[in-house]
Nucleic acid binder design. Structure first.
Length: 425
RNA sequence: GGAGGGGUGCCCGAGUGGUCGAAGGGGGCCGACUCGAAAUCGGCUGUGCGGGUUAGCGCCCGCACCGGGGGUUCGAAUCCCUCCCCCUCCGCCA
């Protein structure tokens, strides 16, 4: 949520910055409502003050045994007027809030202006692309042939965009989760969280998935609960409606959860393989920081995510997203894209964002400055560290051998009972 | 699922429909005492919104907030309705 004060003071500037994302936003309408809202509040305060004073007077008269009847009828009229204005105020505030909740975050100054992903900038490359003396195959062929991935039975028991893993495939997934968590906990100083995989509506409003992106979520029938689309949602909301002492900041959390996404609007995209699924595993990184440090924390969060790929020996590049490709809540985002030789392209495997105070405002997460004084909104950051299914994909494609087997990266072997290679089962 | 109890400020805890933003305690902060500390004594100790003032920290005025929402009333922490959460007992259960 944007700061109404900023909206009020610099409407043209806000409009311009939002315009760089593309689309049109009802700034004037929000400001009109704001003017009306403030008039109503001023008037209501005045009337309530009068009612309070007169009501006290009534009490005083009654105690003195006098009959305050004309005062009572006068205050009764006041009460009716107040009730009417309160109704009006509720409506105005409701509409203003609805509109405000649908405005995306302002892009940070350092974000390149652009239309869509073609304007994203490559800011870093790591690793040499593997050379094959045969034609590298896509993971869906490798995985099915090894007998570790099964798309047909997944479609039977559930539907499209689901996968069954068997044997070393299931083990690889589980090993990656543990490897990533251990790295972030032991080396990078994050605290492990295992949150609920279902969350309520308030929580989804807090991080920005609702009200605007309901169609991307799975909702339970007869319950106001949704399946989490990412651990960012439950973890960032841990501190919703809280005032944290500055001493505890920055908070570093890492969480493994499955993620559930409807992928509405992605029909026909990435239909083969495990790249785009309705359910996938992810280890997420979440940071809660002061406004002063959030951008340096974003850089270190990115490095924490990159290190996973480095240790696994998977080549990647880092993209700085342009304004037109930014997510709703993000002010600045780096995507990490891993090399997928079987498909001959880079595939997004992590997205690291600074949301500044956008989510903090929605979720009302604040901190009390060390020096005392008023609570301020924290900054929230999140990043994948990493998407596990896509990591499996990248391992299968980058470590594939001419005989169809797949070598397991050394750092994972302790997590897989010493297994060095996946061969046909 | 059945029966009952409860949600008040950073924490504990009192509260009669009117002077309660809320007693009392604890904690914390400031000051006094002390070489210093403990103990003791005094003072302070919320959030949001609207308005005013300031170069600014801030300050002043008003309104709202005693789990959320709605209602009764001239007036609600206090009465009524509804939802949420927590606790105890019984039943069921991974």
């Amino acid at each position: 949520m944007l700061d109404l004060k900023v909206l009020r003071e610099r409407p043209q500037w806000v409009k311009q910055r939002l315009a760089t994302r593309g689309g049109d936003y009802p700034i004037e309408r929000i400001l009109d409502l704001d003017t009306r809202r403030r008039h109503l509040i001023a008037e209501l305060d005045r009337l309530r003050h009068e009612r309070k004073t007169l009501s006290e007077e009534i009490g005083r008269l009654k105690r003195q045994g006098q009959d305050p009847e004309d005062l009572v009828s006068r205050v009764k009229l006041l009460g009716e007027r107040i009730k009417a204005l309160e109704g009006e105020l509720r409506e105005v505030e409701g509409e203003q809030k609805r509109l405000l909740l649908e405005l995306p975050n302002l892009p940070h100054e350092s974000v390149p202006v652009g239309e869509d992903e073609k304007d994203n900038q490559v800011v870093k490359r790591w690793g040499d692309l593997p050379q094959f003396d045969f034609k590298p195959r896509p993971h869906w062929e490798i995985g099915v042939e090894l007998g570790i991935l099964d798309f047909e039975r997944a479609a039977k028991i559930t539907g499209s965009r689901f996968t069954v893993y068997y044997g070393a495939g299931a083990l690889l997934e589980r090993a990656l989760i543990n490897f990533m968590l251990d790295l972030h906990i032991r080396k990078h100083g994050y605290r492990e969280v295992l949150p609920p995989f279902m969350v309520n509506e308030e929580t989804l409003i807090g991080t920005g998935q609702l009200p605007k992106f309901k169609e991307d979520l799975f909702k339970l029938e007869d319950w106001d609960y949704y399946l989490v689309p990412t651990a960012e949602v439950p973890v960032t909301n841990l501190h919703r409606e809280e005032i944290l002492p500055e001493e505890v900041l920055p908070l570093y959390y890492t969480a493994y959860t499955p993620c559930f996404r409807s992928e509405a609007g992605a029909h026909g995209r990435d239909t083969r393989g495990i790249v785009r699924q309705h359910q996938f595993n992810k280890v997420e990184l979440v940071k809660i920081t002061t406004p002063e440090t959030s951008y340096q924390e974003l850089e270190s969060l990115l490095l924490d995510a990159e290190e996973v790929l480095q240790l696994l020996g998977l080549p990647y590049r880092v993209m700085l997203l342009c304004t037109g490709d930014l997510g709703f809540s993000a002010a600045k985002t780096y995507d990490i894209e891993v090399w997928a030789p079987g498909q001959g392209r880079f595939v997004e495997i992590s997205s690291c964002s600074n949301c500044e105070d956008f989510q903090a405002r929605r979720a009302n997460i604040r901190y009390r400055p060390r020096s005392g004084g008023k609570p301020r909104f924290v900054h929230t950051l999140n990043g994948s560290g990493l998407a596990v299914g896509r990591t499996v994909m990248a391992i299968l494609e980058n470590y594939q051998q001419p005989d169809g087997s797949v070598v397991i990266p050394e750092v994972l072997r302790p997590y897989m009972g010493g297994l060095e290679r996946i061969t046909r089962e």
